[in-house]
């Protein structure tokens, strides 16, 4: 049971680089990398809102719940 972060998929669809996205939403590239690689333990609503705004998507497009098989 886990929450997957599909940020890289959305970034590829929008053709936006990590550096550019990080700059637009006001976080460091290192923190964006933590988020992309699924190492983050939590995400702030403000960060999620900024991501959805910049990528033009819904939170569900970035986060995905996967249950145990």
């Amino acid at each position: 049971m886990e929450i997957l972060v599909n940020l890289d998929v959305m970034m590829a669809r929008r053709k936006i680089s990590s550096g550019e996205l990080a700059e637009r939403i006001g976080i460091t590239s290192a923190n964006l990398s933590v988020l992309k690689t699924g190492k983050a333990k939590a995400i702030r609503f403000s960060t999620l809102m900024a991501l959805c705004h910049e990528l033009g998507c819904q939170p569900g497009d970035i986060l995905e719940f996967r249950d145990d098989p």
């Binding site: 976080i27 923190n31 964006l32 933590v34 190492k39 983050a40 333990k41 995400i43």
Partner: peptide, 8 residues
């Protein structure tokens, strides 16, 4: 602190 550091 560890949790806070990994809250983005």
């Amino acid at each position: 602190k560890s949790e806070l550091d990994l809250t983005i």
